[in-house]
Computed example of a mutant assay.
Amino acid sequence: MGGWNAADIPDQTGRTHVVTGATSGLGAATARALAGAGATVIMACRNEIKAQAVAKTIDGTVQVRALDLADLASIRRFADSVEGADVLVNNAGVMAVPKSHTADGFELQIGTNFLGHFALTALLLDRIADRVVNVSSVTHHIGRIDLDDLNWERRAYSRFGAYAQSKLALLQFTTELQRRLLAAGSRKLAVAAHPGYAATDINSKTENLLESLINLGNRLIAQSSAAGALHSVYAATAAVEPGGYYGPSEWFGWSGPPGRVGTSGAARDEKTMRLLWKLAEELTGIDFPVS
């Protein structure tokens, strides 16, 4: 692949990265790339046994710690265990699964993909030295934030609609976090990335008839997990613009080397993102340390 690649990752010796969902797919590939560049990587994973097995395959310094983003109590315990880090990569997620709920009663996709990472970032921000990276998706373009029914209690449930909403929420969160950091005079960065079309486990756990089609696409046209993770690694280590969004620069955003990419108009809706921020604080019960 031309352009920026794994050989261009800046030396990460002496730096610590927290990567959520590092058990498989993009998260494991992200952890592997960062550890290979010299970083200490904290693998924040729900399944510790599986994570330990993955950690043994990674050359470099890695630590496995328990984190269930669908449980605010687990998020608090994990945050209490982290003394400090340079970068937080909010990578973990669930995609287009049947309707279910987190331990705190949130719809699973908005609860895991957005509210869990919102809470984690809020609890860790004062100990993050450099930047926060939120991993979104090209599906944010079809997302819609329903502030009156964020948890799909009144709407007819749509698996992909819920997924797209959660990934759009992550982009709005990124923009609003960067605005607040700048207003507070902080030099910390909030950036986002997306992997394009990458073959990962998340694409094959939709539990519906579309799964067979996704699996076929994974075999025929998808990038590898390592190629997809490169965009998160770029956002975590390269010289990036505050609030920037990075992903594949070729094939309509499906593949190619990392580059600055565009967002939907909804991702730039300032009124909605500020109301979403307030709602997220109310739902999680966590006040963010930047106002």
Rank of each mutant, 00 (worst) to 15 (best):
L279S: 05
V94K: 04
R179N: 12
A267E: 07
I75E: 02
I142T: 11
I145E: 08
I128P: 10
L88S: 04
R15T: 12
L213E: 11
Q223F: 00
A119F: 04
I202D: 02
A129G: 12
V290P: 11
L168M: 01
I221T: 13
A39M: 09
F78N: 02
L189I: 00
T121F: 08
L124F: 06
S166E: 12
G247N: 01
G256W: 02
E282I: 06
L177Q: 06
Q63E: 15
V62T: 15
H141N: 14
I202S: 05
D149V: 03
I49G: 10
N203P: 01
N134S: 13
I145F: 03
N218C: 04
N218P: 01
R260M: 10
S255L: 02
I42K: 03
R154K: 15
E207I: 11
F106G: 00
R65N: 12
I58G: 03
T102C: 07
E48C: 04
N91P: 03
H140Q: 13
G21M: 00
G36K: 04
V19L: 02
G265F: 04
A169L: 01
I286M: 01
R187A: 12
L72T: 10
N91Y: 07
A31N: 06
A238G: 06
A280P: 08
S264I: 05
F288Y: 11
K271Y: 11
T200P: 00
A33Y: 00
A39H: 05
G253Y: 05
F173A: 01
T237P: 01
G185T: 04
D146C: 12
I9S: 00
P257E: 01
T57E: 14
A96Q: 07
A70C: 04
L120T: 03
A44L: 10
R46S: 09
A199S: 12
L213P: 03
G84H: 15
R32G: 04
W152S: 06
D126V: 11
R32E: 13
D86S: 11
A7Q: 14
E211F: 06
T206I: 15
A53G: 05
A184H: 08
F106M: 06
R154V: 08
F252A: 13
G265T: 10
S74M: 06
R77Y: 06
A280T: 09
T57S: 14
H117R: 11
R274G: 15
L230H: 05
V132P: 03
L88Y: 02
T16S: 09
T16V: 14
Y246G: 08
A6Q: 08
D130V: 01
E48F: 00
L69F: 01
L26Q: 06
V19I: 10
Q52R: 15
G228Q: 04
I142S: 11
D80P: 02
P248A: 02
K56C: 12
E153R: 14
Y197M: 15
S136W: 12
Q63H: 13
N215L: 14
N151K: 13
G25D: 00
N203H: 13
A66Y: 13
L108E: 13
L170K: 05
N47P: 07
G256C: 03
H117K: 09
S249E: 06
R260D: 08
A236Q: 05
A33Q: 13
L283E: 10
K278S: 13
F252W: 15
V62C: 14
